[in-house]
Design a protein around this nucleic acid. Structure first.
Lengths: 341, 341
DNA sequence: CATACCATTTCAAACGTTTGCGAAAAGAGT
DNA sequence: ACTCTTTTCGCAAACGTTTGAAATGGTATG
């Protein structure tokens, strides 16, 4: 049961002046008599007057709301993106509405429609894995609501993008394994229809090539979940017992592999070195701690927020901008065959 | 650069009829001529007309927005709460605005003020650890915006609450350790000024008492972070080498303890059994997998959302409701001294 | 032929705020 | 006493939508 919020009209009525005078008095307009100003401001404070944001939104045709659609917030990476967005948005007086697609195309469409009618000022989106058609993005584009893609982008749409250099990250990870003495590395790869999966694989291959390491038919395994790695790795190791390094497409898979390696009594990193990708919380929790590639979720979120704010506040329609962030190699115990002093 | 959104006025102008007729035609009002209806509805579809939510908000004095304030979304537990809230809210046409307090009292106050002026219809809040004064909650109460506390509640304010039975959870965890043969259990406890810390400790003590197990001066250690456990446990074990069980106030601490135990070459669970609290993702990732208490974040979120919706939609001012959810013991390898067939 | 009645449509107010413009009042200058 | 200026304030429109009440035009009833 909502109590009546104090409005400008209320103040006007009490003071026997007009709403416009109150409005001007509150913002220190020079046209207003100092005494009137004082009266208004004091009463406003006393009654805890707060401007009604909705009325302002209607007038100014903006909601100071940014819609954020991510697959699942429970994933560390996405929640760091969100944190980054929130920080920058808040600094400019914006708030974020969060919706999850749960990797479902339909939920994504639904969310976009719903947020659109909430009159958000812009979208920040990470595509769902199952999104294969893009009419809903096109629709947003037509309506003229700005949109920024983060991490997973749709290249059929004119929109800003914030990506991470997956190729380079994978290259660095693989190079690191090689420098630590690995000569027979397996890559647990993601789905090859996603850019992420593809780029990381390419980076892996490039690093091997540059070091003149030959590629075997088992060097690349499509395997990107914890449980799959748990099953796959023991088989693989029993078949090819010279494997001495694993580069996984994400941390969770790397940790599955880690468990599997331990289960067949091979030592990490002495016998098999492991590197993941993302630098999520679990990489630090793992035992031994997991070497990984920092995907910079927080920075990505901040960047995306700045981009959307720029779009929202800009008058002219400059072309789409793509930012590619660098990754960092985070070296921990799981890959250190050679001790660093 | 935002393109002009199609409004009812646009449609009215094109069809040479009044906005009110358009409005009624769109909602199938019986007063409107079927032919007019058809014209309007077809044009509306053609122009992709979408009602302006802001205008409706202003008229109906509601925003269909629920403000959610949590300490940090990167924590698995909070993100599951959010997911639960989102699901129920969406089902009723509501959206959630998320703000993080980062466990800071000031950020919490700031967030509440900001969301309040965004005219949200209600709050769902998990108190920050550093929140010790409650005027900002009182303010919300006075204004008449409904509020539900989740997990960490403020008892100085008349508001609904969704809590978890911490005492019972801790009791079950401890009992489980005892049933598995532990006779010398250490509890890594949370801060005792928070109800969570207190209740879990009490549950622990009650379980020991009920089993006639004596309590030592080192049975309770204030230690609730991964890193602290990492440092504390080795010292403790070298001093009291008969310790055979650890019950930690949260999963992260449990895993810190786990690492520490392994580092002094004690076997888990054979020599030392470990149980955590929360059932976060990492408990499943840990090696060995961690036995823990499921804190039911998703259910809590759902419950909180239902409560706030009920408040928002209710006309009369019924007294504050508190719901206490049961926890589940999730048994995994880290505690199983006795094998279950 | 006036009245009643119906279907259909429009008017106007409302939600809370901002803002260009005009108006009233008071003082200054001639 | 007249105009001119300045100070201070109110009117009205606008944002997009809903909705009770009034208006319109037409037909049927007395």
């Amino acid at each position: 049961m909502k109590g009546h919020q104090v409005t400008i009209k209320d103040i006007a009525k009490i003071l026997h002046i007009s709403p416009s005078t109150v409005s001007r008095a509150l913002k220190d307009h020079p046209d207003i008599n100092p005494q009137t100003k004082k009266n208004v401001q004091e009463l406003a404070k006393k009654l805890h007057y707060k401007p009604n944001q909705i009325a302002l939104n209607l007038l100014q045709k903006e909601s100071k709301l940014i819609g954020v659609i991510v697959p699942e917030i429970i994933h560390y990476f996405f929640s760091t993106i969100i944190s980054g967005i929130e920080k920058i948005a808040n600094e400019s007086g914006y708030h974020i509405i969060i919706a999850q697609s749960n990797e479902s195309y339909h939920k994504e469409v639904e969310n976009i429609q719903a947020l659109l009618s909430s009159n958000i000022d812009g979208f920040i989106i990470t595509m769902a894995k199952t999104t294969l058609t893009f009419d809903h993005y096109k629709n947003v584009e037509e309506i003229g609501v700005p949109m920024v893609f983060v991490d997973r982008a749709c290249d059929k749409v004119n929109a800003d993008k914030v990506l991470v250099d997956d190729f380079d990250g994978a290259y660095k990870a693989t190079k690191h394994l090689i420098e630590n003495g690995c000569e027979n590395i397996v890559h647990l790869a993601g789905p090859q229809n996603l850019d992420i999966g593809l780029q990381r694989k390419e980076g892996f291959l490039a690093a091997l090539n540059d070091s003149n390491i030959s590629i075997n038919d088992y060097s690349i395994q499509i395997c990107d979940t914890h449980d799959h790695a748990l099953k796959l790795i023991p088989k693989l190791l029993s078949k090819y017992n010279n494997i001495d390094g694993i580069f996984a497409v994400n941390d969770l898979t790397a940790i599955g592999a880690m468990k599997a390696v331990k289960s067949v009594n091979k030592k990490i990193p002495e016998e098999i070195a492991i590197v993941g990708f993302t630098n999520s919380y679990i990489s630090y929790i793992a035992d031994p701690e997991l070497t990984t590639i920092d995907q910079k979720g927080y920075e990505m979120g901040q960047h995306a927020a700045r981009m959307i704010l720029k779009r929202i506040q800009s008058v002219d329609n400059y072309g789409p901008v793509t930012t590619i962030l660098n990754t960092d190699l985070i070296i921990r115990k799981s890959s250190l065959k050679i001790k660093i002093e």
